[in-house]
Write a protein that binds this DNA or RNA. Structure first.
Lengths: 234, 234
DNA sequence: CCTTGACCGTTTTTACCGAATCGGTCAACT
DNA sequence: AGTTGACCGATTCGGTAAAAACGGTCAAGG
């Protein structure tokens, strides 16, 4: 990541607002350059292509989201439980509407990029543990009761996550309870179902910490490799 | 409802397959008539418009779904708990793919009809209790612990329902656990969270029975009024 | 050096056409 | 009385072509 380049940063900032408002397809390189106060040519000094721009946007948002998730989870009073992990994720999502739309593969936002073969989502997912694997690890560490089916639990978690990031666009905005309460409810519900009676054991906490770190490092490594590749191509 | 008219029934059956396959927009009245073995003119002897056809389809599917839901819930071993109610709903949904798509307001299926002002969804919802109201009633009857926020619970239920009917189209079909296990998991999760320790009391069961009946009667009344109106317009 | 905007080839949008098809009607026929 | 299919105006479709906008490049200028 090259935050030293102020031009790149301004382009990314401009792109974020424009893409968030009009989507990838309806946001032109010229527009982004103009909004950032540089020429179109300069855009191509910072990015190799329009795709590289959106990918950088997605990756930085993912990084910021994951960082936020990490601090949220580690500060959670029930750290070590699936509920805490999940509540942290939801709280982080709530603060990052862009991430919500990325997560649900919003077609309006991502446009044609979504159908690009070998897009950043596929490549990112390659290194990351799936939700099912993560839960299996947590179960082995005692963070999840041994009598529940981890794969089923993972699927239900996916269902809830998807419903949560998708529903707001579906229902009328009126009358939905405060997000914080909803997240707390979901988190507690997960814990009632999944967490053993003896609460989050130290080994559960350690496994969760390791899992979070693995995710963070995986993403960081991906970003570093990418940054190096970009620098080399220059 | 006039099941005595075999022509109407055949038109509806033909429409169901065609609409399910090609959607409302791409299914023409002529096609439906031909598939039902009658002329286009005859179609308009049975239905006042194409909209009336899709509405009848939606309403009958809703009725069949609700009936199925009712038997499923009443036969459930944990009848009287929210989990049982919910598991029954999911099981009924699983058997009625059309209802799933109606519930999520599938644009491909419903096409232009979806954007029609004063469509059947708005009119149907008018008489029915919202999920929030239903849960409030259940809570008062002791089917839900008094220390949970019923409106939050209702919202989370909506989230799960929406995620469940929407996710299958989103994720790859591979690797999802069997529906029955998923439903059971969700139902148990709800019960762990919502149902009081003393289990489903008789009063809870009574309230739930009343609630189900209210829903069934509301829909039946709506259908009857509609059928009468249609007969009168003839 | 670094930056620019005119320029390139391609893709997308717009406009337009007649033909086809749409939902809906109704005089004619069985 | 019950049913039909030709018919209506409106909408959509498929094809075409001109115009606009696109992503990306690079000689020229600062």
């Amino acid at each position: 990541m090259n935050d030293a380049d102020p031009r790149e940063a301004r382009l990314l900032a401009a792109a974020e607002t424009l893409v968030l408002r009009h989507g990838y397809d309806k946001t032109s390189v010229a527009e982004v350059a103009r909004a950032a106060g540089v020429s179109k040519g300069a855009f191509y000094l910072a990015f190799a292509s329009k795709d590289e721009l959106i990918e950088e946007l997605v990756l930085r948002e993912s990084l910021a989201f994951q960082a936020r998730w990490g601090t949220e989870v580690r500060a959670h009073p029930r750290f070590g439980t699936v509920g805490a992990m999940y509540e942290g994720m939801l709280a982080a999502l709530e603060e990052r509407p862009l991430m919500s739309r990325i997560m649900r593969r919003d077609a309006q936002l991502l446009g044609r990029y979504l159908h690009r073969p070998g897009n950043v989502f596929e490549r990112m997912a390659a290194g990351q543990p799936t939700r099912g694997e993560a839960l299996a690890v947590l179960q082995k560490a005692g963070a999840i009761r041994s009598d529940v089916a981890a794969d089923v639990a993972a699927h239900v978690i996916n269902i809830i996550a998807f419903g949560l990031v998708s529903l707001p666009d579906f229902v009328v905005a009126t009358g939905t309870p405060p997000p914080g309460e909803v997240f707390a409810f979901i988190g507690q519900m997960m814990d009632h179902m999944l967490t053993p009676a003896d609460g989050p054991t130290p080994s559960a906490r350690a496994a969760m910490e390791q899992l979070m770190q693995r995710g963070e490092e995986g993403l960081a490594r991906f970003l570093d490799a990418r940054a190096a590749e970009r620098r080399a191509r220059r």
